[in-house]
């Protein structure tokens, strides 16, 4: 695990949005977000069933570090880890960070991304499926995950979702180019 001073922190502009937690390293900050989400939407985590205690290794290929996530509602844990720590997890999900984020809002089809190999998945397929279906139903927006409200939430959503729109177009083009049509 990456610890102490080596743990990446949020960029200054994002830190500015969370004055209360700006000092926290990224892992605890995301842990806090996930746990507070569990407080607001407890039913969301029921959908994961037995896979709540699975360890998801999430590897944004364009970042220098990866995450492990145990999405166990108010006992959730997010850690920032080295890329080499995949082996200890039950599921590994790899892809560009914007694409991974775009799965959260559910308008980008996880199946399509996986089958066109924009994201790659290994490990317990059923845990991935449970996570995908849970996220799909959650109708999360980026601000929900960060626990934001009001104008600030709209600002963050507009920014991130705008970026995701671009990714979506790229993914669309990619999957149509690759698959033969009959």
């Amino acid at each position: 695990m990456v610890t102490g001073n080596t743990e990446p922190r949020l960029p200054a502009v994002v830190r500015h949005l969370f004055p209360a937690f700006a000092g926290l390293p990224l892992g605890p900050l995301l842990t806090l977000s996930l746990r507070s989400l569990a407080g607001r939407q407890p039913r969301l985590f029921d959908r994961l069933g037995e896979h709540r205690t699975a360890c998801y290794f999430i590897d944004p290929i364009d970042l220098a570090f990866a995450f492990t996530v145990v999405p166990d509602a108010e006992r959730s844990i997010v850690r920032v880890v080295r890329k080499s720590e995949a082996a200890t997890s039950s599921v590994q999900i790899r892809g560009p960070i914007l694409t991974l984020l775009s799965l959260l809002d559910g308008t980008l089809d996880g199946d399509a991304l996986f089958f066109s190999r924009i994201i790659s998945i290994s490990g317990r397929t059923e845990a991935v499926l449970a996570l995908r279906n849970t996220i799909e139903d959650a109708e999360l927006r980026p601000a929900d995950l960060l626990g934001l409200r009001g104008a600030l939430a709209r600002l963050v959503d507009t920014g991130i979702l705008g970026a995701l729109g671009v990714v979506r177009q790229m993914a669309d083009r990619n999957s149509r180019d690759k698959a033969p049509e009959a």
């Binding site: 089809d109 996880g110 199946d111 279906n133």
Partner: peptide
Amino acid sequence: EGRQRGKGY
């Protein structure tokens, strides 16, 4: 068909 598919689809 497609109860396993996402809402976008």
